[in-house]
C-alpha cells in the first residue's frame, strides 16, 4: 500500500501537468470569447510529438541531446519529493527545501545550456534572459520557503506541510506575505505573465520558447512536458506549503481520495488565477522584472522579521 502511494506520488505530476496546461488555455479561450481547444489537447500534442521524426542541428553537441532527459528527470524527481496529496508518500531524505531549489536550478542550467548549444541568436538570448531572471528569483524562492520553514521548525517540505500554520492565527500575516513573495517567483519560474508569454514566438520577447526552439520530436515533447510539470510543481508547492489543507495522512483509501481531490481543486484554483491574470494584464518590460523579483525577496524578508517579533 505504501509502495503504491509512493508510485502514485511520482506519477501524479507528469500525469496531471498537461491537463493543467489544457485547463488554463481553455479558461483563457473562454475569457476571449473563443471556444478553445479541448482540455486534453496537450496530451494529444505530446503524443503527436513523441511519434514524430526528429531533426537536429549539426552544431548540436551531446549537451543538446542530453538536456531534455536531465530537465525532465529533474521535474519528476522534484514532483516525487514535494507534498502533493499525502504526507506519507514522500522520500524524506531528499525532500529538503534547499535540495528542491537547487535541483530545479540543475534543470534550468541544462535548459539554458541547450538553448546556447546550437548557436542560434534566439536560443542565446532566451538563455541569457532566463538566467537573468532565475538568478534574481533564487533569493525570493529560498526565502519564501524559509519563512514557512522557520514557522514549522523544519526545512523538510513534508515536515512543513504537516504543520497547520493557521492554528493560533498568529502567523497569518507572515504566511500571506511569504505566499505573495512565492507567487511572484512562481510566475517567473514557470514563464508566465508578466515575465514571459507562453503563447508567443516573437523573437523580441520570448524567453522559455526561445531556448527550446531547435528541438523537435521526442526531445521537444520532453521539454514541453517538463515545463508543464514545472507549472504543476509550483502550484503544488504554493498550495501545500502555504495552505496545507486536506493532505492525507495514513493509508486509508478515503483520506487519500480526499487528498487527491483537494489537490485537484487547488490546482484548478491556481489555473483559474493564472488564466485571469494572463487575460487581464500585459507583459512587463524586461528591465522592470528585477524590481518585481526584488519585491518578492523583500516581502519574504519582512515576513521573517515579523515571525520573531510576534
Amino acid at each position: 500500500m505504501t509502495f503504491s502511494l509512493f508510485l502514485l506520488q511520482g506519477l501524479l505530476v507528469p500525469v496531471l501537468s498537461p491537463l493543467c496546461v489544457g485547463v488554463i488555455k481553455k479558461i483563457k479561450a473562454w475569457l476571449q470569447n473563443r471556444q478553445g481547444a479541448s482540455i486534453i489537447q496537450p496530451y494529444r500534442d505530446l503524443w503527436k510529438l513523441f511519434h514524430k521524426d526528429e531533426r537536429i542541428s549539426k552544431d548540436a553537441s551531446w549537451i543538446f541531446l542530453f538536456a531534455p532527459l536531465v530537465v525532465f528527470s529533474v521535474k519528476v524527481f522534484v514532483g516525487w519529493n514535494i507534498p502533493l496529496f499525502s504526507l506519507d508518500s514522500g522520500f524524506f531524505a531528499t525532500s529538503d527545501a534547499l535540495v528542491i531549489v537547487y535541483a530545479l536550478a540543475l534543470g534550468t542550467f541544462f535548459l539554458a545550456l541547450a538553448g546556447l548549444d546550437v548557436g542560434s541568436a534566439f536560443g542565446g538570448f532566451g538563455s541569457s534572459r532566463e538566467m537573468t531572471l532565475s538568478a534574481l528569483a533564487e533569493g525570493g524562492f529560498i526565502f519564501s520557503l524559509l519563512t514557512v520553514a522557520l514557522l514549522a521548525g523544519t526545512t523538510n517540505l513534508f515536515g512543513i506541510a504537516s504543520h497547520s500554520l493557521f492554528d493560533s492565527g498568529l502567523h497569518f500575516v507572515p504566511v500571506i506575505l511569504a505566499f505573495l513573495g512565492f507567487f511572484i517567483i512562481l510566475l517567473a519560474e514557470t514563464a508566465r505573465f508578466p515575465f514571459d508569454n507562453p503563447a508567443t514566438h516573437l523573437e523580441l520577447t520570448m524567453i522559455h520558447e526561445a531556448m527550446i526552439l531547435e528541438y523537435s520530436g521526442k526531445r521537444l515533447a520532453l521539454m514541453e512536458w517538463a515545463s508543464a510539470n514545472k507549472l504543476v510543481l509550483f502550484f503544488a508547492l504554493g498550495a501545500n506549503i502555504f495552505f496545507p489543507i486536506g493532505l492525507a495522512s495514513g493509508t486509508d483509501i478515503s483520506t487519500i481520495l480526499i487528498g487527491v481531490g483537494a489537490l485537484l481543486l487547488k490546482l484548478l484554483a491556481f489555473c483559474l488565477v493564472i488564466a485571469l491574470l494572463e487575460s487581464s494584464m500585459a507583459k512587463f518590460r524586461f528591465f522592470r522584472l528585477p524590481d518585481l523579483l526584488v519585491a518578492s525577496f523583500i516581502l519574504n524578508a519582512v515576513a521573517i522579521g515579523l515571525i520573531n517579533s510576534l
Partner: peptide, 11 residues
C-alpha cells in the same frame, strides 16, 4: 522507429 536527421540551425 524514429528517424533522426541532421540539419542546419534555423537561420
Amino acid at each position: 522507429k524514429q528517424r533522426i536527421t541532421l540539419g542546419n540551425t534555423w537561420d
